[in-house]
Nucleic acid binder design. Structure first.
Length: 235
DNA sequence: CCCTGATTCGC
DNA sequence: GCGAATCAGG
């Protein structure tokens, strides 16, 4: 398989959308996870929470030579004492777990949008609180005290974008529209939600509610955790 | 062991 | 440019 423009576009979108290299590789087909990562790097997109690079100690002094291949006595290119040790990084970023960082980053409390009218929860179980971006947290357990004040704010945007009369294709994605995948890539009707995003999130309000769920006590978890990109493909 | 992304290096 | 092999953390 070669990297056609379309495949590259898919890689880009999915990578930026947060899909893992494995998922991207699976959906693209014909390439390995490594190929995806390699391509992503060559494309200049990297910088994603890597388990390995997550903690960068200011030490890191002695990288034991792993490659027995070529240890040239003259000029090892690994030589750079300065490294990146110069300024001690004040804020080290712990590897973010999927949901946490986004929620944490948003404005403190005051943003809650559940002001005047509680959303008409049709099929949703019980609304416990309102997430920072305005999406609804929910859960059967009531352990979470309801977010208090809710200064009058405009209700969640969620205004349907005009262009979603048709279907939002991969190429229609932007940071303005909900990236929640509908169906599986490769299937004829695969598309993305395309609604206006919940500001600061990659998904619309509704799908934020699906993507970011309140952690429930063990044993009381709901079974079906919907995953972006349809989750592991059943083949 | 499984997963992850990063890096290296022969092709 | 490509990607398998390898590394390394979770």
């Amino acid at each position: 398989m070669s990297w056609t423009d379309e495949r590259i576009a898919t890689l880009r979108k999915m990578w930026e959308g947060g899909a893992t290299a494995s998922e991207i590789a699976t959906e693209l087909g014909g390439v390995s996870r490594n190929a995806v990562i390699g391509k992503a790097h060559r494309l200049g997109l990297k910088a994603r929470p890597s388990p390995v690079k997550a903690n960068e100690k200011k030490k890191a002094a002695a990288p034991a030579p792993k490659k027995p291949a070529a240890p040239p006595p003259a000029a090892p290119r690994v030589a750079e004492p300065a490294e990146r040790a110069a300024p001690v990084q004040p804020a080290e970023r712990p590897a973010p777990s999927a949901a946490a960082p986004v929620a944490a980053r948003a404005e403190p409390a005051a943003e809650s949008a559940a002001s005047s009218q509680p959303m008409p929860s049709d099929n949703l179980p019980k609304i416990v609180s309102v997430g920072p971006g305005g999406f609804l947290r929910q859960g059967p357990g009531d352990q979470q005290a309801p977010i208090p004040p809710a200064p009058p704010r405009r209700l969640v945007p969620a205004k349907p974008s005009p262009d979603i009369a048709g279907k939002t294709s991969l190429l229609d994605l932007s940071d303005k529209v909900c990236r929640w995948p509908m169906g599986h890539p490769g299937e004829p009707d695969f598309h993305f939600c395309g609604n206006a995003v919940n500001p600061g999130f990659p998904y619309c309000v509704e799908h934020c509610g699906r993507a970011y769920q309140a952690q429930l006590p063990r044993g009381v978890r709901r079974p079906p955790p919907p995953l972006p990109f349809g989750g592991p493909r059943v083949r």
